[in-house]
Design a protein around this nucleic acid. Sequence first.
RNA 1: GGGGCUGUAGCUCAGUCGGUUUAGAGCGCUGGCCUGUCAAGCCAGAGGUCGCGGGUUCGAGCCCCGUCAGCCCCGCCA
Length: 595
Amino acid sequence: MPEGQTFLKRTAICAELSLEKAGQEVVLNGWINRRRDHGGLIFVDLRDRSGLVQIVFDPEKAEPFAVAEHVRAEFVLAVRGTIRQRPEGTENPEIASGDLEILATEAEILNASETPPFLHTDRTETDELVRLKYRYLDLRSPRLQANLELRHRVAQETRAFLSTEGFWEVETPILFKPTPEGARDYLVPSRVSPGNFYALPQSPQTMKQLLMVAGVEKYFQLARCLRDEDLRADRQPEHTQIDIEMSFVEREDVLQIVERLMVHLFRATLDTELPQPFPRMSHEEALARFGTDKPDLRFGLELVDLTEAMAGSEFKVFSRVAQSGGQIKGLRAPGCANYSRNQLDNLTEFAKAHKAQGLVWIQVQAGPRLESPVAKFLGEAEQKALIERLGATEGDLLLIVADQAAIVAESLDWLRREMARRMGLMQAGDWRPLWVVDFPMFKWDEDGKRWEAEHHPFCMPHPDDLELMKTDPGRVRAQSYDLVLNGTELASGSIRIHRREIQQQVFDLLGITPEEAERRFGFLLKAFEYGAPPHGGIAPGFDRLVMMLAGEENIREVIAFPKTQRAQDLMSGAPAPADPQALRDLHIKLDLPPE
RNA sequence: GGGGCUGUAGCUCAGUCGGUUUAGAGCGCUGGCCUGUCAAGCCAGAGGUCGCGGGUUCGAGCCCCGUCAGCCCCGCCA
């Protein structure tokens, strides 16, 4: 061993091995993936980040053989050996280096391992509880290693692309003030300002707008965003956004840069061409045709409005809903007329689980003749109208919900996706991006009896709708936009208000007093008084993007150390009680609920 | 805060109608045999707070109540 070297250090990695190098000596470092002991001959699959290679330990090489007798799964091993072609008939086409093997001449155990609680080489899928507790072992699996590498590449490609486009990557504070979004903040107490708290940013929203005032013009950041809200399969308390803000731009400029970024990322990572240009749809149209503001365009099954056609129906549910201002809508599932009674009951339960009062199903038989519990209540004209409007033909299953518009939309959105799943219409590798534009600027909060910002209070209203702010706020469109991919919201952004009088109008409508505005974001309003350029931006969700590129259905699979639904880290045990002295330093006394 | 699913060996699971003494299987683990395997094979062995607490019962892994944890969903949020 050379002077100063403390262990048998690698001269190659698995991916570099090839038959062209047969006869050469290499030193490999890695983990024992598997061990096959034939008594007189021991095979070990050595794993490093780049791949696997089979090491052969022959009893004739007594010293390395003695080492191999003691190694077990996940031991860390160093091996010196010669690359050689495998004997004919013993090649392993399953692994990249399957045509060669390493005949060990020297071996050193760099570290032993306890028997791991689970092995990723098992065919079984381990409970996530165990996987999260031993996350560092789970991360050794090819699946998560590939996800980490993909994440790294997406980050690098994003930086390269945006840099080339003239964007500067600027870091913004993690210790900041509450941001204007509506989520709960994570608070950090200040030791030197007793009683005062920082808020961890829900997003760098105000900071990136300040960077526009500061003349940065094109900003981006892979920004960590923290929100103290409940988790979902696609939501973690901390997530990363590709945060983007641009000056002297209109909506079109922002959409173009993100569209090109996405096209670039899909090319660079999946070698896939996204369909261009991305289609666009108003929020209103998305809701009408799909019942959601993030429609999955991989399949049809569109919602059809039947309210007018059914308004005079003898079927009381229909006529009552139509007369009371509700909606009747349906979708057509081609070829599903053969659903059994059991399956139909199941669908009805599904619709009810998603708020619908009930589900009307109609099987379209030859003729076409409609078969359904409600068929006898539907007159000939109504049956004809149903068939025409839904475009029904023999073999179809029609699913109809009658209720308040919001419930019709929600339940049919769920049903539409459920039917697509059952019909196998959600194909992996079929990418259907969509811009949803012209979101409403405000939404009415029934509980608080007040208007709320749909996006955030710095979002610019549509120029044609400025007058409506005074008369009909619910109809004001915002200059905001969402990027939707296969039914997942991938990015959200807007053109911002840069003029004080419009900002004041919005605040007034939202019931934000000048005092409150001053207290919450006076620093931003102040900055706007010193020459704020027209600006706008967007923030694609980095974790969600990587999740989709990886073909994963859960955001945890693309985050190195994710948290559970109760926002805990099962590996470290965070969150944990604070040291009493630390609390005293912060002048904090606990007031915990009983038990 | 609410609804649903799950919880039996280190891991993945089975466990019938509440009743065969000692709760099983595969993988893993330990020991032995084995020179071309690659999910190596063969033989033997160890390994259990049936999530936890209470209840019903002559008897509970199984039934009831509560509770904890993980996941999915609603609310919330992006």
